[in-house]
């Protein structure tokens, strides 16, 4: 025993290991439970994020240039498809406007200031992404000073892509909806089927083989079909109702023939986005 403690280097290594494990455990708890990290971490993150925005700017410009060329190649086909949709879209727009007006009047009559579907938008740019992508985290250039709060949902393009997990003063970290983090808060969603029935569940992960989000905790006898729309249900957390998540691509039934896992095609490519919108729900609550 005396010989063991006489080995100075071994003792130093052990102390470093214990200190590191403690720091990992402590910071992990802080990240999961506290609304914002300690001041020193917030300042370091804001400085790093500002510098990262400058470093990534030329690379993003090149990336966007390539995307523009690809878009140009696809322009003709997209134009044909859009021409078909546009007549229907005009009708939907008119209906939507009428419904919105009607909805607003009804809310006034009921003295409802805000409902689960009301929200404000905070636009943000992506500045950086976690290099070793274990946790599917990326950084944005908006923080608490712009009204961002922990657990707010984040959308890009057509639909939901993640939620805010850490808020600094002028930057935030966002965890993708596809994360494999078992400790992550899950998004409550609902499937709207062809009969306009709503089926609740949660997005529980991402299937790399099928490149689809997985939805579980479904308890229904209602039919779920390929192509059904999936939106957020507004239950729990800070996510408003009605954010588009994706479409059903396949359904895996359990031994009793009930849907156990539903595979969803995300509305947005989860590996290609540069501008996002943080959603701030008007109605707050657990």
């Amino acid at each position: 025993m005396r010989k063991f403690f006489a080995n100075k280097k071994l003792i130093i290594v052990m102390i470093i290991l214990i200190a590191t494990l403690s720091t990992v455990a402590l910071s992990f708890r802080v990240r999961e439970n506290r609304s914002a990290p300690p001041l020193i971490q917030r300042v370091a993150n804001d400085i790093s994020n500002t510098a990262a925005a400058i470093v990534s700017a030329p690379m993003v410009a090149i990336h966007d240039g390539f995307n523009n060329v690809t878009d140009l190649v696809n322009t003709y086909n997209e134009n044909q498809a859009l021409k078909k949709d546009i007549t229907q879209w005009q009708q939907t727009k008119a209906t939507n406007s009428t419904l919105k007006q009607e909805n607003s009047q009804l809310k006034k009559q009921l003295k409802l200031n805000a409902t689960l579907s009301d929200y404000k938008q905070i636009p943000a740019s992506v500045t950086s992404r976690q290099p070793a992508d274990w946790e599917n985290i990326f950084m944005i250039n908006k923080g608490s000073l712009q009204g961002v709060k922990k657990n707010m949902p984040v959308v890009s393009g057509a639909g939901l892509i993640g939620r805010v997990i850490e808020v600094n003063n002028i930057s935030s970290k966002v965890e993708l909806i596809s994360t494999a983090n078992t400790n992550a808060d899950r998004t409550a969603v609902e499937i709207v089927n062809k009969k306009d029935e709503h089926i609740n569940g949660i997005v529980s992960g991402y299937d790399k083989t099928d490149e689809a989000l997985t939805m579980t905790q479904i308890n229904t006898k209602n039919a779920i079909e390929k192509g059904d729309t999936v939106i957020t249900s507004g239950l729990g957390g800070l996510t408003p109702k009605g954010l588009y998540v994706g479409k059903v691509v396949s359904v895996k039934n359990d031994d009793y023939g009930r849907p156990a896992t539903v595979y969803l095609k995300p509305a947005t490519n989860l590996n290609d986005f540069s501008v996002v919108t943080v959603i701030s729900r008007d109605v707050q609550g657990g």
Partner: peptide, 27 residues
Amino acid sequence: FLGLLLDGALSFAGQGILITPQWQVAP
């Protein structure tokens, strides 16, 4: 420090090439 920032910037700008469902390259 520039290398530290470049790691994340490249992961972001190169997403879709460096990060795909089939593989991940960490700069």
